[in-house]
Write a protein that binds this DNA or RNA. Structure first.
Length: 763
DNA sequence: AAAGAGACTTGGAACAATTTTA
DNA sequence: TAAAATTGTTCCAAGTCTCTTT
């Protein structure tokens, strides 16, 4: 059967594209609230065929209430000091006030090996000198040039570090030299970046489990303490003025800021918020404020609105100022040193307090996400590194040196009691290596997927119920790229499912539907409460099995009552080292991308067409993986605009055609004025020639967008799943410049793939 | 085994920057 | 030249899967 696998998938993809349009998440959720007589029955032993239902879940969960709330009278002062530090410290790596000898040794070592890093500043200066000599050639695409020009300004500003006001007088067009120089500078910068890139993929890997040998960083950045509302902004309860305490006020502001959001209309959200808010109130406040509906946040809301507006209308200078401040922050906190290389940190900012925004019908939405203090944070770094200083007057919860993990700092969040981590950026070695590994495993799966398929085909007829269930689940995971579906604590999160946690209510069986036999209709909420709706014809054996699994069960019972992800993955492990359910998603996405590309692209196509093909292929992947996005509010309008453009072109075309005719005639008639007539003719001809091409481009764009509307567009998401090496390879082969498909960040992230991929790479 | 803790990937929404359009 | 549209980035919730404890 393995052969039917892929071709039928293609059909599905196409069919789906045309079918289920217009399923907003909203309308769907309304119906999704079915009775939940949740998972109780689960036979623990796989080997056992029938009988012995065990009472499954103890729903006792340790509640960890941590009281971290503390009044901090020194907050303002501290803030000020911190700000001052930022202002004064130009060199982020100032070592004078650190007397750590070991550290110095390290430092020297680093400087030898890595000329960039902390020496960046001086490097920049050198650049400036050099750039005059540099030529601006070797820029292949005009389209890129355009982009550059706009960036030139920025680059210059950054380089010269002069105050913005200096620009005021220079509104005139830039002189040629200036432009050239800036261009050269950009090229230089790019080269340098490339030179500085850590080509870790050419190095040897560390022994098992070790993630790094040296790690030094500045510690995470903490958001500023809460600032009281100005005196003229008041809060009223039941029409009467109430002056809130600082803690209560802060939480009230969180709510007020969200008043525009649908969240604040939801019952659960309001209740959770109100009860958490009351916990922050003083006794008196608690006595007075007993009903959320009587609270009047309008003045706070108004102030917030004004603030947002003001920020939008900020002058150039102010905007630049905030930008610079952010840049400084990034320079100071955004990087770490990992094994002699400077690596960007992904999220160096501690999450600010606020109201929890769970997705879908999350039972905890609206709860207060408390402010994280240094006392909550565990720092992870090398013993021999410069240990990060906690903010003034604070302590870290712990400093540990664990080089078997990749995080730099962690804390436990109070709403769900989960760990949060500060980790490196996607373009870092640690992330890249993992990514690479992922694709290697997926490739390995390619070599044995047929065996696995044969195996689960056979298992469909097993005598043991558990094995049959496993086989059907695997069939779904392989064919439909469903997620594994771990069990979740009931009532702690929104009710979403994956393959193993599917319930009877989520599928319906149609022996025949729309001319196809054995159709299974899926309808459930997956990750992030995104609806999965699909009608799939399946094999007879699968169909029969499903019927069997559903016998004597309530809608809320588990479809695969003898199966869970642990068992499934254990089985997969036995089939191939490193294989888990997730790998099938990667694998199928990759293989689909490759197939689609092969099918869709034609080496003779022009660039826009090639890109369209690429996007189409990506879309196929997105459909497979059920990646969706709320349609942009502006979609209709933007489509209409494009249509108008096409109409416009059409008109132009017919007009130009007429002109051409006329011109030809003129040329004949007035032999004397031939030159002029010729010019007319040429011009008209040009328009006629160009128009179809341009029209084509626009309609391609339109097509692209229509399809993208319901799906994740622009390579972004699909990219995450689809095989990067595959895509990179395809670009090479087809001579589409990578820049057109991947943006800078993405190229950065996949530097390893770009570098390693030869144009004959096959996934 | 079952539950729990921990670590790390995934992926949509919100926000910010940039480009296009009117 | 401002507004609208598009594209890129950040944020952080929600998964997967492994390892440890009970």
């Amino acid at each position: 059967m393995g052969d039917t696998q892929t071709s039928s998938k293609d059909k599905e993809v196409k069919a789906k594209e045309s079918k289920d349009k217009g399923f907003g998440k909203e309308e769907f959720r309304a119906g999704g609230d079915v009775s939940k007589s949740k998972k109780v029955q689960r036979n623990s032993t796989l080997g056992n065929t029938e009988g012995a239902e065990k009472e499954g879940k103890g729903i006792s969960r340790k509640k960890k209430e941590k009281l971290t709330k503390r009044e901090n009278p020194d907050a303002d002062l501290e803030d000020f000091v911190r700000a001052a530090q930022i202002q004064v410290k130009v060199e982020p790596e100032e070592e004078d006030f650190c007397i750590n000898k070991k550290d110095k040794v390290k430092k020297r070592l680093r400087e030898q090996e890595e000329p960039g890093g902390s020496l960046l500043e001086s490097a920049k200066k050198k650049k400036k000198v050099k750039m005059e000599v540099e030529e601006a050639e070797q820029e292949p695409e005009k389209q890129r040039k355009k982009k550059k020009e706009s960036k030139v300004k920025k680059a210059k500003k950054e380089q010269e570090g002069r105050p913005v006001s200096a620009r005021e007088g220079g509104k005139h067009k830039k002189s040629k030299e200036e432009v050239e120089a800036a261009k050269a500078l950009k090229i230089k910068k790019k080269e340098e970046e490339e030179l500085q890139r850590w080509r870790w993929w050419e190095e040897e890997k560390y022994e098992d489990g070790i993630k790094w040998k040296f790690l030094e960083h500045r510690g995470p950045w903490f958001p500023a303490e809460y600032q009281r509302l100005p005196d003229n902004v008041k809060f009223y309860y039941d029409g009467k003025l109430v002056t809130l305490s600082s803690a209560a006020e802060e939480v009230a502001v969180f709510f007020a800021q969200m008043l525009d959001h649908e969240y604040t209309t939801k019952e659960v959200f309001r209740n959770n918020f109100f009860s958490d808010w009351r916990k922050e109130m003083t006794l008196e406040e608690k006595m007075i404020i007993t009903d959320l509906n009587k609270c009047d946040f309008s003045e706070i809301y108004k102030m917030h609105k004004e603030k947002v507006e003001a920020r939008k209308n900020q002058g150039k200078e102010e905007k630049q100022k905030t930008k610079d401040a952010n840049q400084k922050l990034l320079e100071e906190y955004g990087y770490c040193t990992l094994d002699h290389h400077r690596e960007r940190i992904g999220n160096f900012k501690i999450e600010p307090p606020g109201l929890f925004r769970g997705r879908g019908d999350h039972p905890k939405q609206g709860m207060l996400k408390k402010r994280i203090q240094p006392e909550d944070v565990i720092i992870n770094c090398s013993k021999d590194s410069k240990i990060p200083q906690p903010p003034l007057g604070h302590q870290w919860k712990e400093v540990r040196c664990d080089n078997t993990v990749t995080w730099l700092a962690s804390w436990t969040e109070n709403v769900q009691g989960l760990c949060k981590y500060v980790m490196l950026n996607a373009n870092s070695k640690l992330k890249g290596e993992k990514d690479w590994e992922k694709y290697e495993i997926a490739r390995k799966l390619k070599s044995c997927v047929e065996t696995i398929r044969t195996q689960y085909q056979a298992d469909l007829k097993s005598k043991q119920m558990g094995i049959r269930q496993r086989a059907v689940a695997l069939y779904f995971i392989d064919k439909l790229a469903l997620r594994a579906g771990n069990e979740k604590e009931e009532g702690e999160t929104a009710d979403t499912v994956g393959c193993c946690s599917l319930r009877v209510e989520h599928i319906s069986l149609h022996p025949e539907l729309d001319g196809e036999k054995y159709v299974v209709e899926f309808d459930f909420l997956g990750k992030d409460c995104i609806r999965y709706y699909n009608k799939v014809p399946v094999e007879k054996a699968v169909f029969k099995n499903l019927k069997l699994f559903m016998e004597d069960k309530q809608p809320g019972d588990d479809l695969f009552d003898r199966l869970n992800t642990a068992m499934l993955n254990k089985h997969l492990h036995s089939l191939m080292a490193g294989l888990t359910a997730k790998v099938f998603r990667t694998y199928n996405a990759s293989i689909t991308l490759q197939q689609q590309l092969k099918e869709l692209t034609n080496a003779l196509d022009n660039i826009p067409e090639k890109i369209l093909s690429y996007n189409r292929a990506n879309r196929a992947v997105a459909i497979l993986c059920n990646h969706q996005r709320a349609p942009p509010k502006t979609f209709e309008q933007s489509m209409a605009n494009l249509q108008a453009k096409i109409d416009n072109r059409k008109e132009q075309l017919s007009l130009a055609k007429k002109e051409l005719k006329q011109a030809k005639k003129d040329a004949k008639d007035h032999a004397d004025d031939k030159l002029l007539a010729n010019v007319f003719m040429l011009h008209a001809k040009e328009t006629v020639d160009k128009c179809p091409w341009k029209m084509n481009c626009i309609s391609l764009q339109m097509l692209n967008r229509t399809a993208n509307c319901q799906l994740t567009s622009c390579s972004c998401m699909a990219l995450l799943y689809s095989n990067r090496p595959t895509a990179v390879r395809e670009c090479r082969k087809m001579e589409v410049s990578l820049e057109k498909i991947y943006n800078k960040t993405q190229r950065d992230k996949f530097a390893w793939a770009i570098d390693m991929t030869e144009s004959d790479f096959v996934f």
